[in-house]
């Protein structure tokens, strides 16, 4: 399948400035974004559970260029979202898709493989991966180290693609039950608040979460770092850090595709995706809407109905 993918990229390359995919990074365990300009570059392409990055994050800054992008199912929803928001032009992107079996969560691997700093080689197949370090060989099943989002994946195949190779896979689940959220919210309000305070206390304000987010398109003009408007101060306290996460989540309301990049990028392993998932389910329930599926749709918070059937207003 990888070969077929390479073939189709090579075929399209002459029309394009370049194509984005994944190649091997600084060690065999870490993939890294790969920019393919020439047919030779395409040979370095990899496909598998290590392709963790959502490359759609790079697209908005490439507006105007003609580029190709290889996407997993989840990545493709970010592309749709960018198309919907007019941040990229459909004519300027060529989308290559393939069925995804799930990707790994590096934090889980680090826990399972204590010596993961010295990786010699990694073998991957459909069900798992074998990691050889300078000391040991670890056989891990994919289920063990799979990213949480993949365990509830509804769209393993790109929802939009110009070239789709391989056989479409059945989704892991039909509906996301939001069990993580349910269990979190089974705690009392004070516990939840204390949880976030301790988590936010650890935040180092690196903004990796925002930078990895394909929909945080404001970047240099993010309100986190602006004085006008001045939403958060630079104080190293819980309040401003928490406020920023709320801002990020609310700015994503109705847009976030729950790709999980924010949480994956966080060096402090702060579970910031949970906030966005909460909004995801609220919006799904209220407006019967899932982001990143229809580039033509009018997103729910930029629309309204005269009578909102699902909003039950308080009766005074």
């Amino acid at each position: 399948m990888l070969d077929k993918l390479k073939e189709s990229i090579k075929a399209a390359l002459p029309e394009l400035d370049f194509v984005m995919g994944w190649g091997m990074g600084y060690d065999p365990l870490h993939a890294t974004p790969l920019y393919m300009y020439e047919p030779e570059d395409v040979d370095n392409l990899v496909w598998g559970p290590l392709n963790v990055h959502n490359l759609a994050v790079h697209l908005p800054s490439l507006k105007g260029k003609k580029v190709g992008i290889v996407v997993k199912g989840c990545d493709s929803r970010s592309v749709v979202e960018l198309l919907q928001e007019g941040l990229i032009n459909r004519e300027d992107v060529v989308i290559f898709g393939a069925p995804c079996n799930g990707i790994v969560d590096m934090s889980k691997i680090r826990k399972a493989v204590p010596d993961a700093h010295f990786v010699h080689s990694v073998e991957t197949d459909d069900n798992g991966l074998t990691i050889t370090t300078d000391k040991d060989t670890h056989k891990l099943s994919l289920a063990e180290v799979m990213a949480d989002k993949c365990t509830r994946c509804r769209f393993p195949n790109a929802v939009v693609a110009d070239h789709f190779v391989g056989e479409k896979r059945e989704p892991t689940v039909e509906n996301d039950a939001y069990e993580d959220l349910e269990s979190f919210e089974s705690q009392g309000f004070e516990e939840r608040r204390d949880f976030w305070m301790t988590e936010m206390d650890r935040c180092i304000r690196c903004y990796a979460c925002r930078n990895a987010c394909p929909l945080c398109v404001c970047r240099d003009h993010c309100v986190a770092q602006s004085r006008n408007p001045h939403w958060v101060s630079q104080r190293d306290g819980v309040r401003d850090k928490f406020m920023f996460q709320i801002i990020h989540a609310m700015h994503m309301a109705g847009r976030c595709t729950e790709c999980g990049e924010c949480e994956r990028a966080c060096p402090m392993d702060i579970p910031v995706l949970l906030l966005k998932r909460k909004l995801g389910t609220v919006i799904h329930d209220l407006f019967d809407y899932d982001s990143g599926l229809d580039a033509e749709a009018r997103p729910p918070l930029l629309a309204f109905k005269l009578e909102e059937e699902s909003i039950k207003e308080k009766d005074w």
Binding site: E191, D194, A253, F304
Partner: peptide, 30 residues
């Protein structure tokens, strides 16, 4: 149309704050 947009945003927010550990009853819109 302002209050139509507001109704959606505020309802979403009201339901959202419970995950932050804030009782939704602390916020009302009418």
């Amino acid at each position: 149309e302002g209050n139509y947009y507001a109704r959606r945003r505020l309802e979403v927010f009201k339901q959202f704050i419970s995950v932050l550990g804030i009782e939704p009853e602390r916020f009302e819109y009418t």
